[in-house]
C-alpha cells in the first residue's frame, strides 16, 4: 500500500554542538491519520517535532507538505503551511474567555464604524468560537468565562478548537495526556478522534503504549536519533503490534 504522504521528512539531521540528536531520520504522515511518535527520553522525538513545527532548522534533510518542498524558518512558517503544534502548556490565556483565546492574534474586526476604530466583533467571535468548541468531544460548560476555570481536558479542547477553526491540516500534540487523570485522558483521546473526524492528521507524542494503541493507527518508534521502524496498529487489542512496539523500544 503506497499512499501519497501528506507530510514527508527525509534524512533529517540535527546536532547541538557535539551531540548528534537526529541522525538522518525519515518520517511520513498520511492524510487523515493519527500517528503516534514513540521513543525513550532522548530518542529525538521532540527535536524531530520541533523541526517540523519550525522551531529548529535541520542541519540536513528535506521537508515536504502536500508534495511541496518547504523550509520552515519560524513556527509561523509551519503554521502557514497548515501545521499547528499544541504544547503541553497549551499556550492559553488563563485570564481570558474562550472566544478571546481562540481568536488571539486573529480577531474579527466589526464592520462600519467599528472597523474604523479597530473594534472587535465580540458577538461573531463568541458565536463562532462556541460553534468550534461544540464540535469537540468535550463539553465546555460556558464560553464566556475565563479558561482558568476549566479542567485539563476542557483546556485541551479550547486549544484544539483553534486548529480546527484555522483550517490546519496537521496537529502535533506533545504529550497531551501527561498531566491528566484517567477520566480526562479518556476525553483527550476522544478529542484526538474528533480531530480525525474533521479530516485532520494528528501526530501525538506519547509515552503510554496503552493510550497509543487506543487512539493511533500507526506508530513510528525512535531510538537514539534514528528511526527504529513503523508499526500499523489495529486497535487496542492488537497484541502483536503492541509487542512489536515494545521490542523496538527496548
Amino acid at each position: 500500500m503506497s499512499r501519497q504522504a501528506l507530510v514527508e521528512m527525509t534524512g533529517i539531521e540535527k546536532r547541538f554542538g557535539p551531540v548528534e540528536v537526529l541522525k538522518g531520520v525519515d518520517f511520513e504522515l498520511y492524510e487523515n491519520e493519527v500517528l503516534a511518535l514513540l521513543g525513550d527520553n532522548g530518542a529525538g522525538k521532540s527535536t524531530l517535532i520541533k523541526v517540523l513545527s519550525g522551531y529548529y532548522q535541520p542541519d540536513a534533510g528535506e521537508i515536504s507538505v502536500g508534495g511541496e518542498d518547504r523550509k520552515f524558518g519560524t513556527p509561523q512558517d509551519a503554521r502557514e503551511a497548515g501545521i499547528e503544534t499544541i504544547y503541553q502548556d497549551l499556550a492559553l490565556f488563563d485570564n481570558l474567555d474562550v472566544a478571546a483565546n481562540v481568536y488571539a492574534g486573529k480577531e474579527i474586526v466589526g464592520g462600519g464604524w467599528r472597523k474604523l476604530l479597530g473594534f472587535v466583533d465580540h458577538k461573531t467571535m463568541r458565536e463562532t468560537a462556541a460553534d468550534a468548541v461544540s464540535k469537540m468531544a468535550i463539553n465546555i460548560p460556558r464560553i464566556d468565562v475565563e479558561v482558568s476555570a476549566f479542567s485539563g481536558g476542557q483546556r485541551q479542547c479550547v486549544a484544539l478548537a483553534k486548529s480546527i477553526m484555522w483550517g490546519r491540516k496537521v496537529v502535533i500534540m506533545d504529550e497531551p495526556t501527561a498531566a491528566l487523570g484517567v477520566r480526562e485522558t479518556g476525553k483527550v483521546l476522544d478529542l484526538i478522534r474528533t480531530l480525525k473526524s474533521h479530516n485532520l492528521s494528528v501526530i501525538v507524542i506519547m509515552h503510554n503504549i496503552e493510550h497509543v494503541m487506543e487512539v493511533a493507527e500507526r506508530a513510528i518508534v525512535m531510538r537514539s536519533g534514528t528511526r527504529r521502524g513503523t508499526v500499523d496498529l489495529k486497535g487496542p487489542d492488537d497484541r502483536e503490534s503492541h509487542d512489536k512496539i515494545v521490542q523496538m523500544l527496548m
Binding site: A99, D131, V133, S134, K135, A137, N139, I143, G186, D190
Partner: peptide, 11 residues
C-alpha cells in the same frame, strides 16, 4: 463524552 446539542452556548 458524546455530543449533545447545546444551542445556548455562546449566546
Amino acid at each position: 463524552a458524546t455530543q449533545v446539542e447545546r444551542p445556548s452556548l455562546g449566546r
